[in-house]
Design a binder for these strands. Structure first.
Lengths: 330, 330
DNA sequence: CTGAAAGCGCTAACAA
DNA sequence: TTGTTAGCGCTTTCAG
C-alpha cells in the first residue's frame, strides 16, 4: 500500500507539513510559488491525502452513506434503487465524494452502522424506505448526523426531505379507467408501512370510497400473482387492477392470461415505476414513470447543502408521469 | 455528532483505553469480568469505535471499493450492476463491511480515487468492465491494493479473478439456430474493448467462420436499433440475430417488427443477460441468464480472502444458462 | 506568508 | 491480565 505521507511531500518540496496541507485546501494564503512547488512534489510522489487522517483531524469524510436494512436481493429486483443511486452518484462525482453503501441484517447492526457514520465515517446519510413513525428519524436527529429523508415523513424532524406526489397519478389512472367504463377497480399495494405505498393506497381509497378491493402486497412477483388470484376469485371480480409496481402488475398480467382472460378486454391493468421494458410488453403495460434519478440528484444536493450547514428544506420533485398504454386501453 | 470516545468508555468502565480496545477486538486475553464491564459501559454510552481512527492506527478500513469510470446512468440501465452489487453486499453484510462506491469523470480522478483507497480508505477493490490491456491492473499492482478482477484478463497479474464462460452459451445458441435451419446468423456485440463482449464475439466468429455479419454495438437500445437496421438492409439479410444483451435485442425486435417482419418466423432473435422482464415479452425473448449476484458473492469472498493475505486464485463461476423461448422457436 | 507542535481516536508495543 | 505510551497522517492553533 501507498506509504507516501504529507511529510514526504513536505520534505520533497522543502516546506513544512502545514504548508503542504494549506497548499491543497487553500485554507490560508499561500504564495503562488510555494504552492506550485508543493503541487509538483505531490504529483511527483503520487501523493493523495489520507481520507482517514483527514477525517480524524477535521471531521470531514468526503463520503455520504446509505444504510439498507433490506435483503440485498431487493437491490437487484427493484427498479428504483439503481436509478436513484445513479442520480446520487452523478452529483457526488462533481465533488469526488464517495457513496458508502452498507447492508445490515438487523436493528442492532443498523444502529451501530449509523453511530459509526456519525462518528466520522460519513458526512451525512440518505434515508430510504421510510415508514410512518420511523425510529431512524429521531435516532439520527439525536446522533446529529446530517440527513435527507427520501419520501414523505409525517412526524416532526429537522431534516431536508425529497418528496413526490404519488396520489396524483393514482387519481389520474382511476379517472382514466372510469372513463373507459370500469366500475370495479382494485388496487394491489406495496407494504402499507412504507409511506409511498400508503400514499398510493390512500389515494385509491379516497377516490374509490372504500377499501373492499384493496389488497396489501409486498412488491414481489409472488405477491402480485397471489393477490391477483384472490381478486379474480371474487364473486364479482374487478374489471381493472391498479398495481403499486410493475413487477406485481406483470405477474398479475401473466396470471390473468393463464386464466384465459384477455388484457385489457377482460381485465385492465396498470403498474407503477415504468420499468424500462414495460413499454415493450404485449400488451404494453400502462405505468407511471417516476424518474428515480431525479430524486437521487435532488437528495444528494440537499444532503451536500445540509453538510455545509444549510437550513433544511423540503423539495417536491415533480417527476411522476402516467403513460397509458394498451393494458388499459378501452 | 457523536463525541463519545474510547476514553469516555474507559473512564466509565474504570479501565485503560487499551483494555477497551482489546475487549472489543479480542486481540489479547481479557478476563470475562472486565470484558463484561467494558461492553456494558460501551452499551450505556452508545459508543462505537471510530473507523477513521481505527483505520489510521491499524490500516484496516472495513470497507471495500468499486470505482466506476462510466456514466452514472449506466448503473440504472444495466441489469448486471445492481444484481452484482446485491451479491457483493450479501457477503459483506456478514462482516459489517461497507461498500464504497465512487464514480469518477476522468482518468485523473480515477487514479486519485485508487490512490486514496490504497492510502487506507478501503481494504481492497473490485475491478469491473475490464478491457484487454487495462491500465488499472498494473496500476493497482503497484499500489499494492488487494484487488479482484471481475471478468477475464489476459495479461500477467497477481490478483484473484472471477470468470465465466461466455463462449459456451453463444455456441449453444448458434447450434440451436442452425438446427432450426438458419444459415445467415448475425451478431450484434458490445464494445469489443470489453473482454466479455469480445469473448462472445470471438465465440461467434469461431463458430460461424467469418465476421461478415458481426456488428459492434455499445449495449444501448439506440445501437441495437441502428445495427439491426443496418443488418436488415443487407441484400441478403440475416434470418437470425444474436445480440450481446437484452436491451439491444429488444430494441432490434421492436425495429424489425416495425418493418413488418414477424418474430421469429422472419427473424429469430436472442439476447444476453436475461432481464427479469424478458420472459414476459411477446414473443418471449430467448436469452442467457448470467446470475450476476453469484459473481458478486464470489468476488466479495475472493477479495476478503485477499485482504486476509490469501494467495490469489481464479474462480470460474458456472452461471450462464441459455433459455430458449419464442423469439427463436422454429 | 510560513514553521512548529498539539491533538483527532484508536491500536500496538512495552512494561508491570 | 492490565496499564502506559508512542505513533498512524492529517489539520490547526499559535508563533514568528
Amino acid at each position: 500500500m501507498s506509504r507516501t505521507t504529507i511529510a514526504d511531500v513536505a520534505r520533497e518540496a522543502g516546506v513544512a507539513k502545514a504548508t503542504v496541507s494549506h497548499a491543497l485546501t487553500g485554507n490560508r494564503p499561500i504564495s503562488e510559488e510555494t504552492r506550485a512547488k508543493v503541487l509538483a512534489a505531490a504529483e511527483r510522489l503520487g501523493w493523495v491525502p489520507s481520507q482517514n487522517a483527514r477525517a480524524l483531524a477535521n471531521r470531514r469524510a468526503n463520503a455520504i452513506a446509505v444504510v439498507l436494512a433490506r435483503n440485498p436481493d431487493v437491490i437487484a429486483n427493484d427498479s428504483f434503487f439503481p436509478a436513484f443511486i445513479a442520480g446520487v452518484e452523478s452529483v457526488l462525482a462533481e465533488t469526488e465524494t464517495a457513496l458508502l453503501l452498507q447492508v445490515v441484517p438487523d436493528r442492532d447492526a443498523e444502529e451501530r452502522a449509523y453511530r459509526s457514520l456519525a462518528h466520522g465515517r460519513a458526512d451525512g446519510a440518505l434515508l430510504l424506505d421510510l415508514r410512518d413513525d420511523d425510529w431512524r428519524v429521531p435516532f439520527l436527529e439525536e446522533l446529529d448526523l446530517p440527513t435527507v429523508l427520501v419520501g414523505a415523513y409525517d412526524g416532526p424532524h429537522p431534516f431536508s426531505c425529497v418528496r413526490t406526489d404519488d396520489a396524483a397519478p393514482i387519481r389520474e389512472i382511476i379517472a382514466h379507467l372510469r372513463d373507459a367504463g370500469h366500475e370495479r377497480i382494485a388496487h394491489v399495494s406495496g407494504p402499507l408501512r412504507y409511506v409511498h405505498s400508503r400514499a398510493r393506497a390512500d389515494a385509491y381509497v379516497a377516490e374509490i370510497g372504500d377499501d373492499a378491493l384493496l389488497r396489501e402486497g409486498d412488491f414481489t412477483a409472488a405477491s402480485g400473482r397471489a393477490l391477483t388470484a384472490e381478486l379474480l376469485a371474487l364473486p364479482e371480480r374487478p374489471t381493472a387492477i391498479v398495481y403499486s409496481n410493475d413487477t406485481m402488475a406483470i405477474a398479475g398480467l401473466s396470471f390473468a392470461r393463464a386464466q384465459g382472460l384477455s388484457i385489457p378486454a377482460d381485465l385492465a391493468i396498470s403498474g407503477f415505476d415504468d420499468d424500462h421494458l414495460s413499454a415493450h410488453l404485449t400488451p404494453a403495460l400502462s405505468s407511471v414513470s417516476t424518474d428515480p434519478a431525479a430524486r437521487g440528484r435532488a437528495a444528494a444536493r440537499l444532503l451536500q447543502a445540509a453538510v455545509g450547514g444549510a437550513e433544511p428544506r423540503t423539495e417536491v420533485v415533480d417527476c411522476n408521469v402516467v403513460h397509458f398504454r394498451e393494458s388499459t386501453s378501452a
